[in-house]
Structure formats: C-alpha cells, structure tokens
C-alpha cells in the first residue's frame, strides 16, 4: 500500500537520512520518535508537502511524484489539529473541503461530527485543540480514503476520546484494504492498536518491525551500580545512580553473564527513552 525508499531531505541543521519502510494493506503502523526526530518531515515528504532531495514514495502501486492528485484523493491526511481559518464556520469549511474530493460522503461526515460532538455552526476558533483534531479526523474519514497518514491524531485528546479514536483505527483496517500510518508521542496508544512500529531518531530509522518483534528484540537489564560497566559497551542507553543501573540492550547482544542481572521486557516508551539516553551517555 505504501512503499518509501531512501527518502532523503537535507536542511542546514537536520537531515532526513535514507528513510525506507513499507506498510502493507490492513495494518496500523505507529511512527515514534522524539521531538525534532523527523516524523513530521517524513510524513510531509510522503505527501509531497516537503520536496525530498532524494528517494521515492509509492502509494497504491503508483508513484507519488507523477500521480499526486490521484493518490491524494484516497489519502486521509491530518497534520495535527485543524488550525487554519479560525474565523470560518465549520459548515463553510466542510462545504469547501468536500468539493475537492470525488468520493466525499456527507453521511459519513455527519456521523463522525455527531460522534465527536462537533457543532457545525461554530467557528473553528471556538473549538478546543482536541476538538480541532477531531474535526480533522472527521474530514480524513469522510472521503473513502484507503490510506490514512496522520500526524499526532491523538494529541490533545482525553483518554476516553483517544480510546474511541483508536477503536476507529482498528475498525478501519479490519476489512484488510485500508492502512493507517500515524505518529504519536503517546506510546501507550500504539501498544493498544499498532501492528508495526517505525522508530526514527535524528532523521534516521533505528527500528522498523512488528510491535511484538520490536519489543522482543530489546531487554532491560537492572543491577548494582558497581556492575554497570559490564553492560555499558553493549547498552543502547543507560540510567544510573549511586546504587544501581538499568540499561536497554538488544536481545541479540545478551551474554551468559547477564543472567546475574534482573531482566525486564521494555515498553515502547522505555525503548524511546533509552534511545534518548544514548545521547546523554555519549
């Protein structure tokens, strides 16, 4: 469904470095990484909003560069909350937006507006940040899209609303011909619904695996502070104080001596945090 190969974008102080990944039909891929890691740049490059210096993006088997308009008809795209045209009434915003989509479904849009409790007669500025995200989602879900590219779709939402939206994502992919790629900082959301995890750090993809595959490929070791040096060379990231340490290491880097340490299965958040720690350790 989505195939990204060697996507590269060079800025004076940042480089999106040969990003490659694939998302098959019927799956949800969570895109994680720290602030400024390159998540939004990647998503914008896929959508041709940022012009990549190199690389290709293929969606539905078509080249994004040459078939952009055709492809975008079938993409539900959300770049955070709807923060444009604050003084415009939602009804007017939707009226204009729907005119661009060949397969716009008024009933679907009404269904989601009702579900999200959005009053069309309000102006966009009258919505809370969370409601603005929901408005963007309602639009993305109302034109028979097959691929959903969503940047921080759950940010600013309360836990109930987040859960509701994650259920919508799961329903979307249940028929097997739609896929969702979404970035988030809230890794617990991904643990609930993601099939694949894409992890970016400083513009470089450091992990691209199934969620379980990714969680299985790392382990957290805990031990006394005096033993930290035994794993320091293999640790991706390490936390230590005067008494003990904990370190994230790759499962494949485990050695027999590690049996002496306490081991834990990391969460996605642990993986992000320890990768972040790697820089501190350096």
């Amino acid at each position: 469904m989505l195939k990204v190969e060697n996507l590269t974008k060079v800025y004076p102080k940042f480089k999106l470095d040969n990003v490659s990944f694939e998302l098959p039909s019927g799956y949800i891929m969570g895109f994680i990484g720290a602030n400024g890691a390159g998540k939004s740049t990647t998503l914008k490059s896929i959508m041709n909003i940022v012009c990549p210096d190199d690389g290709t993006v293929e969606i539905f088997g078509k080249d994004m560069k040459t078939k952009e308009t055709e492809i975008k008809q079938e993409i539900g795209f959300l770049m955070g909350a709807v923060n444009c045209y604050p003084l415009v009434k939602i009804s007017k915003y939707l009226d204009v937006t729907k005119s661009f989509y060949d397969e716009w479904q008024d009933e679907e849009c009404e269904k989601y507006l009702k579900k999200f409790d959005i009053d069309k007669e309000k102006r966009i500025k009258e919505l809370s940040q969370g409601m603005k995200v929901k408005l963007g989602l309602a639009v993305a879900l109302s034109h028979k899209a097959r691929l959903f590219i969503l940047d921080e779709p759950t940010s600013g939402l309360d836990p109930v609303a987040r859960d509701e939206i994650l259920d919508i994502f799961c329903d979307l992919v249940s028929d097997g011909d739609k896929s969702v790629l979404f970035s988030t900082h809230i890794t617990s959301d991904l643990e609930k619904c993601a099939d694949y995890i894409l992890f970016i750090k400083n513009g470089l993809i450091v992990a691209n695996d199934t969620k379980d595959g990714l969680l299985d490929s790392y382990v957290i070791l805990r031990g006394g502070a005096d033993e930290a040096e035994k794993v320091a060379g293999r640790a991706i990231g390490m936390k230590r104080n005067g008494y003990n340490f904990s370190a994230l290491i790759r499962t494949c880097d485990l050695v027999d001596e590690d049996k002496d340490f306490t081991t834990d299965r990391p969460t996605l958040e642990d993986i992000m945090v320890y990768y972040g720690r790697a820089e501190d350790n350096d």
């Binding site: 959508m47 041709n48 909003i49 952009e68 308009t69 055709e70 492809i71 975008k72 008809q73 993409i75 795209f77 770049m79 923060n83 444009c84 045209y85 604050p86 003084l87 937006t97 661009f100 989509y101």
Partner: peptide, 15 residues
C-alpha cells in the same frame, strides 16, 4: 496567518 497553505497543500490538487 490563517495557515491557508497548510490547508491547501493537503488537498488533492496539483501544486
């Protein structure tokens, strides 16, 4: 100021 381009760039239209 109203992020007109942010909206328009996501639409299915050629640049």
């Amino acid at each position: 100021e109203n992020r007109d381009l942010e909206y328009t760039a996501g639409l299915p239209i050629p640049r």
